[in-house]
Design a protein around this nucleic acid. Structure first.
Lengths: 346, 346
DNA sequence: TAGGTTGACTTAACGGATTAAGTTCTATTC
DNA sequence: GAATAGAACTTAATCCGTTAAGTCAACCTA
């Protein structure tokens, strides 16, 4: 499996080597290797055989230099590193993304920038300027997101995970946050909850705003009182906010958490306050992962095929790179995984 | 911040553009941009100013083609995707790795291959053949790891996270598993535990074997009886194995888990069996993350500055690429974070 | 049999940066 | 005033694959 033959490890073969060894021209070798007309069948076979024997691969630099695309897609993760730590969302997204990329012959260039979101745009500028990438995926849409116009100015193809962007030329993979909100609120309302708390992530993120609006609207539609609090995605902060919310006079009987990590931290805080889950407090997590099933009780969660979401983003980007702008694409729907953390209020 | 000026978004500037606009040769521009002698100071300044104005970046392809390195490092993650999901280790490792890479002007090319570990070597072959990368980082050392000889055969620089590799030419970032084992066992022994269970990850991984040996040896040295069981890294499997171990006649009073995820699943299983933690069962996790502090009680864990580990691997690799083989490098030591999950047996 | 077509190639230019090897011109030195 | 050194450039080759344009022989047709 691990490379055959005892060829020297030093110099990597080039097309010129193949051409010389077979006594033909570089061009003929190129035609043969790219399955283009202009070479006889047996010549083609001899070229292919020798190329295989020499372990030849086309230099991506030379290819890119003569006009071809690089077949590389860029991704910048720009949350503080201690959040990446917990947000298993990213790695699931990444896994799905990568699968589609590799299926379609693309590679992923990754940058993790901790606490300097302004580096994101300059990273794009550099990568694009250096002809390292063919396109990028924008995660974590912000409210007035400067990245959209930056891409337009650079002429750099990209997909936005978020949107919709009315009148923008870049395709969006859009998630129906309001629909998800309705499902979660409906579940709790049907169990008999009348006061729901929403522990929401930072409102700089467009999806958090959409979720907040969605939860409020869904609550209004079902006669449920909704209280929203915002917290950074970190566990300790989510715990603190939850504690405060549960200490209030008219405390909610159910909480919706913005992520699996927040849910776990929040439930931990609730337990410390002596509340039993689900008897005294129901909880829903807005993101599912194996985490939610690891703790006791397992957490009811909106589950969204995150790898599929990443894969879809990759597919939309590759289509764009290849000239097909798919516009607004809807991400796979979430489904509610009902588990032990939700029950009727006592 | 987001790109200034109203320059056209289409064509990206080249050195030839700069040369033409200033009426000098490409070579002079190159010398100016690379801070090499051969140009007057004011010419250099004008070149630099124009380059900045045009948003010029050196084409990485052209650079690489004329012999320079690509300044890209490759990493293949080859665990089943559902494991990546939980293993927050990877993303912390990645974050640290990336920080050092970007500080030193390198980028990361990432591939996630789910369940086909044999693709890893062929990915290296392709990346190296295509001149996309300067080196790779090998994670998850296996027992007779075919990747080591594959790299040697290709002449592809790489660091091994693991080792030591006696007589091998590739540098290793080595973790003292036996030392860590001794710390964990010592902690439990000092609390009075005499029967310890070790829920170990799959023994195809070299580090799991080293840990198993380390725990056994440390137990023997302190008169502690050690039982080892192996499980895949998945939560459900770890739970199952834990349950079986705790059901036995002479059940251990303390468990050491191979990862944070396994620890959480295991503790969940113990709670289901009616065991209280830490009164009836103490638990130590061999990997720390925010996860271990999110649950109740928080889990005592061997904590190892995973981002620092990733960063070290990156530094050793870049040094190798630049011609300095650092040989066997010791990874930062783990420290035991004592939390609520360990106490003296009742 | 001249003229045209096709197949199987070869030649040469190109892309963008690097760099060895010139070429000018100015300044210094004896 | 001639020789020499050095600064400030330019020229041209190189890296490797792609591709438009050209060559040459064989085969086909009216």
């Amino acid at each position: 499996m691990a490379g055959s033959g005892a060829r020297g490890p030093r110099r990597r073969a080039t097309m010129a080597d193949i051409a010389e060894q077979l006594g033909i021209s570089k061009a003929a070798v190129s035609y043969a290797l790219n399955d283009q007309p202009g070479v006889a069948a047996d010549t083609r076979d001899r070229v292919l055989a020798l190329a295989r024997e020499l372990g030849w691969h086309a230099s991506s630099s030379a290819r890119a230099l003569s006009g071809a695309q690089t077949s590389v897609v860029g991704l910048v993760l720009s949350r503080p590193t201690d959040l990446l730590t917990v947000e298993t969302f990213f790695i699931r997204f990444l896994a799905g993304l990568e699968q589609v990329l590799s299926e379609r012959g693309f590679s992923l260039l990754l940058r993790v920038i901790g606490d300097h979101p302004e580096d994101e745009i300059s990273t794009y500028e550099r990568w694009w300027g250096e002809r390292r990438i063919d396109g990028v995926i924008l995660m974590d849409e912000r409210v007035h997101d400067p990245r959209v116009s930056a891409l337009a100015e650079l002429g750099l193809p990209g997909v936005l995970c978020g949107g919709p962007m009315p009148g923008a030329e870049l395709p969006c993979v859009w998630t129906d946050q309001a629909g998800d909100a309705a499902v979660a609120v409906q579940h709790l309302a049907a169990l008999g909850h009348r006061r729901i708390g929403h522990v929401c992530g930072p409102p700089v993120f467009a999806h958090e705003r959409a979720r907040r609006r969605g939860v409020r609207r869904a609550g209004r539609a079902r006669g449920v009182e909704v209280t929203t609090v915002e917290a950074p995605y970190t566990g300790p902060e989510a715990g603190k906010v939850t504690r405060r919310m549960l200490a209030s006079e008219s405390r909610p009987t159910a909480l919706i958490f913005g992520s699996d990590t927040m849910a776990i931290a929040g439930l931990s805080a609730a337990t410390e306050l002596g509340l039993r889950v689900p008897e005294d407090l129901s909880a829903v997590s807005w993101d599912d992962s194996i985490l939610t099933t690891l703790i006791q009780p397992a957490v009811t969660a909106l589950s969204r095929d995150t790898p599929g979401y990443g894969g879809l983003a990759a597919a939309v980007l590759i289509d764009l790179i290849e000239g097909r702008n798919r516009g607004l694409v809807r991400a796979p729907l979430s489904t509610l995984q009902v588990r032990g953390s939700t029950a009727r209020p006592s």
